[in-house]
C-alpha cells in the first residue's frame, strides 16, 4: 500500500504541478474533467451497455404507458411494477462498473483531499504538532523526545506531555515560506514530518501514521512511520479549509465542487463518447 501511495503521490504532484499557483478551482476543474471522462470510459468498459440500454428503454416504456393509460388503474399499477423491476435491474447492472470504480475513486479522493482540503500555513501562523504514542506506553513515563525544526520554522511552546492521552504537543510557528521537515528525536531513532509553508495548491500532509492498511488508505500523503516506533502518529493541524473555493471554510467543500463538476462533465460527454449510463 505504501508503494502504491508513493506512486500516486508522485503522479498527483506532477499532474497538479502546473496548477499550483492558480486558483484551486482551475486545477480542480481540470481534474474533474479528466475524472469525469475516465469514469465514463471505465463505465463503458466494465458495464453491459446493450443490457443497460434495453433496461432504460423499458423504464421509459413504463413511464410512457402510465402517461398513455392514465385513466386505467390496472394498467398504471402494472406499469409501475414493471418500472420498479427494471429499475432494480438497472441498479444491478450499474453496480458492476461502480464496484470497478470504487477502489480508484477512493484513492483519487484521498490524494485530492490533501491538495484541496487544507489551507496552507503562512509566515507568522502558529500550529500544533501532536505526537501520539502507543496505548501501551508506560503510564506516567515522560518520553525523552525532542523536536528539531529547520530555520524556516520556530518552536513557540512545548513540549506538553499528557500522560492520560499518551500525547506530546508542541506549538510551532512558520517563519518563512518553504517546504520543511520537522525532526522528532526519539530513543528509537529520528522521525520526520513534512511542513509546508505555502499558499500554493500543494500536497499537505496532516497525519503521518503508523503502518496499517486503513491508515495508509485514509492518510496517503506521507510515508508511514516505522513499524517498530512507539510513535503512532505525528499530526500537524493545518487549518481546515479549502483555500477559498467558495468562501465557505470546510475541508470537504472541494469534494462537493469536484463531484458536481465530474457529474456535469460525465453527463455532458456521455453522448459524444457514446456511453449509456
Amino acid at each position: 500500500m505504501s508503494i502504491l501511495n508513493a506512486i500516486l503521490r508522485r503522479l498527483f504532484d506532477v499532474a497538479l504541478f502546473p496548477f499550483r499557483e492558480l486558483h484551486p478551482l482551475v486545477g480542480l476543474t481540470v481534474v474533474s474533467l479528466v475524472f469525469g471522462v475516465a469514469v465514463l470510459l471505465v463505465y463503458k468498459a466494465t458495464s453491459n451497455q446493450e443490457k443497460l440500454a434495453t433496461v432504460k428503454r423499458r423504464i421509459h416504456a413504463g413511464i410512457f404507458e402510465i402517461r398513455l393509460f392514465n385513466d386505467n388503474l390496472r394498467a398504471i399499477m402494472r406499469a409501475m411494477g414493471d418500472i420498479l423491476r427494471h429499475n432494480a435491474n438497472y441498479l444491478r447492472l450499474s453496480a458492476v462498473p461502480l464496484l470497478w470504480m470504487i477502489v480508484p475513486l477512493t484513492l483519487v479522493i484521498a490524494q485530492l483531499q490533501f491538495h484541496y482540503g487544507y489551507q496552507g500555513l503562512a509566515p507568522g501562523d502558529q500550529v500544533l504538532v501532536k505526537v501520539e504514542l502507543a496505548e501501551d506506553w508506560t503510564e506516567g513515563a515522560r518520553p525523552k523526545f525532542a523536536l528539531e525544526v529547520p530555520s524556516g520554522l520556530a518552536i513557540e511552546a512545548g513540549p506538553v506531555w499528557i500522560p492520560s492521552l499518551h500525547e506530546v504537543n508542541w506549538r510551532i510557528s512558520a517563519v518563512e515560506w518553504g517546504d520543511y521537515e520537522l525532526t522528532l528525536t526519539t530513543p528509537d531513532g529520528p522521525l520526520t514530518k513534512s511542513v509546508r509553508v505555502s499558499d500554493d495548491v500543494v500536497r499537505r500532509s496532516t497525519h503521518r501514521l503508523a503502518p496499517g492498511f486503513v491508515n495508509q488508505l485514509l492518510y496517503p500523503a506521507e510515508d508511514p512511520l516505522p513499524a517498530s516506533s512507539p510513535v503512532q502518529s505525528i499530526i500537524l493541524s493545518y487549518p481546515a479549509g479549502n483555500a477559498g473555493i467558495t468562501g465557505w471554510e470546510s475541508e470537504w467543500t472541494w469534494m462537493l465542487v469536484f463531484f458536481i463538476l465530474s457529474v456535469v462533465v460525465a453527463f455532458a460527454l456521455r453522448k459524444p463518447l457514446n456511453v449509456t449510463i
Binding site: E21, L22, H23, Q119, A122, D199, G241, A243, G244, E249
Partner: peptide, 16 residues
C-alpha cells in the same frame, strides 16, 4: 477583501 485564508481567491479576483 480577500486575505490570507483566501489568497487563492485573490488570484482569481485579480485575473477578473
Amino acid at each position: 477583501g480577500p486575505s490570507r485564508p483566501t489568497r487563492a481567491f485573490k488570484r482569481l479576483g485579480a485575473a477578473s
